[in-house]
């Protein structure tokens, strides 16, 4: 690295201290938007090992919520704390502990996969041996070994999604936020994505959004239902009444 910038934030080290403090705490998030897709008074708390499925119809406010949690949007009211860091007061530290995969993966089509992952790692403060080690690890985790040297623009939708996930977890963030990670994937790709999510969620707190109930039941241990910008349910996953609850709360 040629220059060392002043605001680089240390990557979160391997999670050595296992406390049960919440990794993500959101309180009363409200964002009024002119176009109507706002969110109102959303509170969430996630601990290590939580895999939360954020369930809602299209336009319910799932993406907006994830954008607020990842720091892309500043809420009108409410606060977000990531691993103890306030998104408002210490945004850089808070964002250092976040891995975010938007609905459109942020991929440079003209880069090779390996180049791109190296950039993603560097931007999150990884360097030297640790960068090499983490890059090798996520390449293996996301089964990208065969496409490492390929130009991203030539990859299939499934691989693109996996590269997107790899960039989100390369720095072992405390909180992983995935916006509809399985959309557009074929059943086989969807299966491997689910497995990836389950693996990732073991060590971290993970939220992914979806409008498919089956996604949630297959992967999550918690479910939160969002409707018209409001959180209408937040409970452990399981039980037969989930579908009924989803129907009831979203109509």
């Amino acid at each position: 690295m040629a220059l060392q910038a002043s605001d680089s934030v240390d990557a979160p080290e391997a999670l050595s201290v296992r406390t049960n403090a919440p990794l993500l705490e959101a309180q009363g998030l409200t964002l009024h938007r002119g176009d109507g897709v706002g969110v109102y008074d959303i509170s969430l708390s996630l601990r290590r090992g939580d895999i939360l499925g954020l369930l809602g119809l299209n336009g319910a406010g799932k993406s907006t919520t994830l954008r607020i949690l990842s720091g892309l949007l500043v809420p009108d009211e409410g606060s977000v704390r990531i691993d103890g860091f306030s998104m408002e007061d210490t945004p850089l530290q808070a964002r250092a502990h976040i891995g975010y995969l938007p609905d459109q993966p942020p991929l440079y089509d003209d880069m090779r996969v390996a180049e791109y992952l190296r950039l993603a790692g560097r931007v999150r403060g990884l360097s030297g041996d640790r960068l090499i080690e983490r890059q090798a690890r996520v390449t293996e985790q996301c089964a990208l070994g065969d496409v490492q040297r390929k130009i991203i623009g030539t990859l299939s939708k499934g691989f693109r999604q996996r590269v997107g996930l790899a960039q989100a977890i390369i720095h072992q963030p405390s909180v992983v936020l995935l916006d509809e990670p399985a959309s557009g994937l074929d059943p086989q790709q969807m299966d491997s994505m689910r497995q990836l999510i389950r693996d990732t969620g073991k060590e971290q707190a993970l939220i992914f959004s979806t409008h498919l109930l089956a996604e949630v039941t297959a992967t999550c241990n918690r479910v939160a239902i969002i409707h018209a910008g409001r959180l209408v349910a937040d409970r452990p996953c399981g039980g037969d009444d989930l579908e009924q609850l989803f129907r009831r709360t979203t109509t």
Partner: peptide, 11 residues
């Protein structure tokens, strides 16, 4: 290209 989210969500 929607790549701006990479920078926005990074420290």
């Amino acid at each position: 290209q929607h790549t701006y989210a990479l920078w926005q969500s990074s420290p």
